[in-house]
Amino acid sequence: MLSLVGKDIHVEFPIYDTRARSLKYSLGLGQIAKGINRLANRKINVGGQIGMGETGRVVIKALDGVSFEINEGDRIGLLGHNGSGKTTLLRTLAGIYEPVSGEIRTVGRVFPLFDLQLGMDQDATGIENIWMRGKMLGLTERDIVDALDDIAQFTELGDFLEMPTRTYSMGMMLRLAFAISTAVTPEILVLDEMIGAGDAAFLARADARLKNFLSRTGILVLASHSMPMLRQWCNKGMLLEHGKLIAYGPLEEVVARYDGMAAS
């Protein structure tokens, strides 16, 4: 039984930039931070909270006491304005950021898919890139060999698979990256925005593959601004604001809350 349980998760980014530091010393950043937070609480909906960490350092509180329980079969749509902590939460779920405090318990293997082309090399051939990207995704050599035919068929790249990918068009490159990334069967899939480019014929074919890919995964967490996308793939919603989880429940309720926020 797959699950993801978070308890009072805090994630803070220390800011080491010298300007921020000298500001802190010369002006007393605490005052500024309070001012910014006051502003933020009043009207501005963008960004995490700026404050002081335990050691007196300037920090951005990206996640501020987030708790949740996600179970097998859940399809979570993650909503929130820019900088509300969506990406940070996704990366925390993936185990990339370990929370400063709080706890996250994961049953199952998390498969983060943020940059489809990560690990691909412009000067390598299509086949070489399949190997590189596949290894990067944690596939075994067997998995990759098994997936080769399927990838070749889907991408329709034919002889181009033997050519360096710098000769590819953007669409061809995307097709290849997409095909490799969706060749796996993830237990828990974490996605930041959905893949959306290429010509109409490709999108139609990608849609079928995507559907198949997403239905194979046990848990899906998808961050997106696109309501049609969220409505198509998700059954639950999570709404983040200033690093706090302010709503978690059936998708439509959370979407309504989000729309209400934008309107007010």
């Binding site: 990366r91 993936a94 185990g95 990339i96 983060p112 940059d115 990560l118 690990g119």
Partner: peptide, 8 residues
């Protein structure tokens, strides 16, 4: 850093 911030 690109790998570290994107893959566990």
């Amino acid at each position: 850093s690109r790998y570290i911030t994107q893959i566990k």
